[in-house]
Amino acid sequence: MTTPLTLTAGHRHDGTALLTAVGEIDMSNARAFADALAGTSGPLVLDLTGVDYLDSAGLSVIFPHAGRIEIVANPLLQPVLTISGLVDLSAPHGSQPPISPR
């Protein structure tokens, strides 16, 4: 069974690409998540403030992009991002960025 996940692409007010994920990210939807990340180029803000669950499949999708992303996450995900090492590779933050529709 596929876990619900909504992915919305857009841009911040400064023009930086923004990908907002809402729901759960796991092996059932990691391919869609990977495709959404691959569909952007350059710097990217990855907004995970609406993500309640992120497993190793989701983490493995983020790692190849870690050098170009700024992760915005809710406090629930902070331990996972810290233990995985993503905190050291990207710039995690705890607040939501301003969103402009694409």
Rank of each mutant, 00 (worst) to 15 (best):
L18N: 03
G39M: 10
V51F: 02
V45M: 03
V51H: 06
L7W: 04
I25R: 04
P43N: 15
L46T: 09
A34P: 00
E24W: 01
L46P: 01
E24F: 01
D35I: 09
A32T: 11
T49W: 00
S28M: 08
P43Y: 01
A9Q: 13
A21P: 00
L18K: 03
A38E: 15
L37Y: 02
V45N: 05
M27S: 14
G50V: 12
G50W: 07
V45S: 06
F33C: 12
D26S: 05
T16P: 01
D47M: 07
H11N: 14
A38P: 00
L7K: 06
D14I: 06
D35Y: 00
D26V: 07
R12M: 14
L46K: 06
A34C: 02
N29W: 03
V22H: 11
H11P: 00
N29M: 09
F33W: 15
G39Y: 05
A34V: 02
G42T: 05
G42F: 02
T20K: 13
G15R: 14
V45Q: 08
T16C: 10
D14Y: 01
L46E: 11
L46C: 06
A17N: 15
T16F: 01
V22S: 11
S41Y: 01
Y53I: 13
A21D: 09
T20E: 15
G10K: 09
A30C: 06
T16G: 03
L37I: 08
A38Y: 01
D35R: 13
L37N: 05
T16M: 09
